[in-house]
C-alpha cells in the first residue's frame, strides 16, 4: 500500500496500470446503471474511472497513505495512536464509511467521519484536533473509507434526532438559494446526465467522498464540495462541519442508500 509521490507519477505514465480492480469497476457500474440511484462514477468518462479503479494510478491514495501512516502514529498526551485502541483498521473500521454520519449524544448532532476522528483525538488521545481540509484529516478519512470500499451505504435514522436532522437536510436540498436562485434539486434531481456548460451533472451522490478532483488537484471533503456548489450559484456558503452541512450530509446518505462506498474516488 505504500507509495511515494514519485511512484504515483511514474505509475501515471505507465500505459497500462494494474487492473486488479476492473471487476470492482464493473460491479459499481452495474449497481449504478441498474438502479435509479447512480454514483457519480457512472457519469464520469472512462479515463477518470480508470484512474479511480487502479489504486496505483489513483492519486487519492497519496492521502490514504498519509492516513495509514497516522493510524499507527502516537500523538497527544495520552500517548496513544488510533491503533492502540482500534488495532487493525481493515477489521475494525470496515463498516464506518457505509454507516456514517451517526448520532452523537454528546453534541446532540449527527457526527460524520471527520468529526468522529477529531472526537477521538480530543477525548481519547488528548491530541489537537486536525483542521478540516488538512492533509491529515483528509488522509485519515480517506483511509477509513478505503477499508470499507464496496459496502452498501446504510445510514440509520433511528438514534437520537437523526430523523429530524435528515428532514432539515431535505429542506436544504430543495431550498432555492443564491443570486442564481437554484436548489440542489434543479441540477442533481432534474438534470443528472445533462451538460451544464462543460460539466456533466450527476445525481450529486456522496458515496465517493473524500474525492480527488482533477480540478482541485487535491483530495477534498464533501463539505468542500458543498461550499463549491454554493459559491457557483453565488450563495453564501456555510462553514466546514456546520450544522447545515451535517444535516445535508445525513439526508444525502438516505438518497444514496445502497450505493457502494467508493471513497476515495476520482472526479473531474
Amino acid at each position: 500500500m505504500k507509495r511515494t509521490l514519485m511512484g504515483v507519477a511514474a505509475a501515471g505514465l505507465m500505459a497500462f496500470g494494474l487492473s486488479a480492480t476492473a471487476a470492482e469497476m464493473k460491479a459499481i457500474d452495474k449497481a449504478s446503471t441498474t438502479s435509479a440511484v447512480r454514483s457519480g462514477f457512472s457519469y464520469a468518462i472512462s479515463e477518470t474511472r480508470e484512474m479511480q479503479t487502479d489504486d496505483i494510478q489513483n492519486p487519492s491514495f497519496l492521502w490514504v497513505d498519509i492516513g495509514e501512516e497516522q493510524w499507527g502514529t502516537v500523538d497527544g498526551e495520552a500517548g496513544k495512536s488510533c491503533e492502540s485502541c482500534h488495532g487493525n483498521a481493515a477489521d475494525t473500521m470496515a463498516n464506518v464509511g457505509s454507516t456514517y454520519p451517526v448520532w452523537d449524544p454528546a453534541t446532540k448532532k449527527p457526527m460524520n467521519v471527520e468529526l468522529r476522528i477529531n472526537k477521538c483525538r480530543a477525548e481519547n488521545m488528548k491530541a489537537k484536533p486536525w483542521k478540516y481540509e488538512s492533509d491529515e484529516l483528509l488522509g485519515m478519512t480517506a483511509y477509513i473509507k478505503s477499508v470499507g470500499r464496496g459496502k452498501p451505504i446504510h445510514v440509520s435514522l433511528k438514534d437520537g434526532d437523526m430523523e429530524a436532522w435528515s428532514k432539515k437536510g431535505e429542506q436544504f436540498y430543495y431550498q432555492r438559494r443564491g443570486l442564481l436562485d437554484l436548489s440542489c434539486a434543479h441540477c442533481h434531481e432534474q438534470n443528472p446526465g445533462n451538460l451544464i456548460r462543460a460539466e456533466t451533472l450527476s445525481q450529486g451522490q456522496t458515496n465517493g467522498f473524500p474525492t480527488y478532483r482533477l480540478k482541485w488537484q487535491k483530495l477534498g471533503s464533501l463539505h468542500r464540495r458543498f461550499r463549491g456548489c454554493n459559491n457557483n450559484i453565488r450563495a453564501e456558503p456555510y462553514a466546514y462541519g456546520s450544522d447545515e452541512y451535517l444535516a445535508l450530509e445525513t439526508y444525502l446518505a438516505q438518497r444514496g442508500a445502497n450505493l457502494p462506498v467508493e471513497g476515495p474516488s476520482v472526479r473531474k
Binding site: Q175, R176, R177, G178, L179, L180, D181, L182, H186, C187, Q190, N191, N230, N231, R234, A235, E236, P237
Partner: peptide, 24 residues
C-alpha cells in the same frame, strides 16, 4: 424553472455577500 431571474433583487435566499444588492 431552473432559469435564474436576471433582473431581480427580491425573494432570494442567502445571496453571497459580494453579490447582495446586485442583479445578474
Amino acid at each position: 424553472t431552473a432559469m435564474p431571474s436576471f433582473y431581480k433583487l427580491e425573494g432570494l435566499h442567502r445571496v453571497a455577500k459580494k453579490w447582495q444588492g446586485k442583479t445578474i
